[in-house]
Design a protein around this nucleic acid. Structure first.
Lengths: 283, 283
DNA sequence: GCCTGTGAACAGTTTCACAGCT
DNA sequence: AGCTGTGAAACTGTTCACAGGC
């Protein structure tokens, strides 16, 4: 077994870097597309282009999973799809509850990508009695009172919070108390959870603010264009080949420059008040 | 490109690290909350707790902005709010257009955090003629045909794409051609854009898949609890003080473990087909 | 004494470049 | 010849620990 022998716990549980884990879904999506077109194999170069990363990074990432490619040939699409799915835990079905069925919650409930890959919306929960029983995305909304029962009854371990900021911590506490150990938080608040519970955060206004930062910077350097236009904004390099070399004969656009490192995972902390930032949804 | 690589080493601090930029909005939110409670100053320790990071990181982050604190005292809340706002470019108003007014687009349009800090929804655009003229969040939806005119007429440089995956690249191309240079993409696709255009991506299913990965890992190690429960899942450390030491006398929960490094910024690449993953919104 | 600001050590991630298999 | 897999180098980000001002 090429399972690197000496050091390197390669296939062992501790191993895959977070940065790599965060990219696996990207590869999986690209591979799924290839699979649907019945493409049998891909080279790291091709797959990397489809996923929007560079090939060295992709190969390194795959090397943490094991040696699933064939030198001189490339990777077997179907096999890789399976291996990555397994690694991500998508071969099993994850029941998910969405709490807070406003516009955002409804959008999430209707999100096809949800159901398509390992996730199943087990229940929609909202605090508004007027919503109870109303079907959203084919599922009847249930009242918050039944939250605990829904969680335990369905063995739910992943919860999505799409409530207003003011209600998020409370909902979070109840989810955790009922047994949820992974939370995807759309409310603009820092959630406090016990050790062992994972929180990932998606925050609209933060994303916009980061864009504004770069936008402002662009405006400020609108002067010396030609020379270092792209690199000046600290947007840095990626796709050294595409961006630097080839004039791209037919493609109308080129690669988006990428600068790594953001966080999507929440850290820690306790926010003082409750509702500081306006909420995403009505009720 | 290969143009030497514009070093920006100098004593002239023209380079705030991306990781720091990504946290500034977090600090800003915590500071705004303090400001509303008329708190005059905060220590790095307090502010860090409110923002969910550790104090050393926060101090380092602020050091890139300059020396805005007072030794022995802390930071002046109002002053810091101003400095960070300025750094992020929020002292000016950014007109934003949202393309794709389905559930998600509507949720974004209604998002209060949008308007509250520097961003103004200049227009809502949808390809469905049935939507045209309908008011969403108090703004009449306009048809895609007017996209270019809206962008140039309002000097819009930031666009939000909330369309189905299949339409995203097309919309993106038109936005860019019309002058947009920053895009927040909610469609599950890799967008290709020319150099100089920033793309940030928010992808629901990716976030869920990352959670599933950790969740799976937790299940697999449900055995040896006590000893290294938290660290075993590679969720790593953050808040060394809180998580490792102090038994937290009164707080009901503790810090959420944080592992850094994700990406929210898209990289590069050209996707082969168009609509592989189901879209977020109906039409 | 308290708390900021920061150099220096450390850790994680990306890129390079090439050995090695097919 | 072509392409993967991977050490090693380069780089980015985080943590430590303490000098230095209040």
């Amino acid at each position: 077994m090429a399972t690197g022998r000496t050091h390197r716990p390669a296939t062992r549980s501790r191993g895959i870097p977070e940065a790599t884990v965060a990219r696996l879904p990207l590869y999986l999506r690209a591979l799924t597309a290839l699979s649907e077109r019945s493409v049998p194999t891909v080279s790291s170069e091709e797959l990397a282009a489809a996923a929007g990363v560079n090939s060295a990074k992709l190969r390194k990432d795959f090397s943490y999973l094991g040696s699933y490619g064939t030198r001189g040939v490339g990777y077997d699409v179907e096999y890789l799809v399976y291996q990555i799915s397994r690694e991500l835990g998508l071969t099993q079905d994850w029941p998910v509850v969405i709490v807070g069925i406003g516009n955002l919650g409804a959008a999430l409930a209707n999100y096809g990508g949800f159901a398509s890959r390992g996730f199943r919306v087990a229940a929609l929960i909202d605090a508004d009695p007027a919503m109870t029983g109303k079907p959203v995305a084919g599922i009847a909304v249930q009242h918050t009172d039944e939250l605990e029962q829904i969680i335990t009854g369905n063995g739910v371990s992943i919860g999505v919070i799409a409530t207003p900021a003011g209600a998020a911590q409370q909902v979070c506490d109840r989810l955790v108390a009922a047994g949820v150990t992974s939370i995807l938080n759309f409310a603009p608040t820092v959630l406090s959870v016990p050790d062992g519970v994972d929180v990932r955060k998606v925050d609209l206004s933060i994303e916009l603010q980061i864009l504004a930062f770069h936008e402002q910077r662009k405006a400020g350097e609108e002067t010396g264009a030609a020379d270092e236009a792209a690199s000046a904004q600290s947007v840095a390099q990626e796709t050294p080949g595409a961006a630097a070399a080839a004039p791209a004969p037919l493609a109308p656009h080129r690669a988006a420059p990428g600068a790594g490192s953001d966080n999507g995972r929440q850290d820690n902390g306790r926010q003082g008040p409750d509702g500081d930032v306006p909420a995403v949804m009505p009720a």
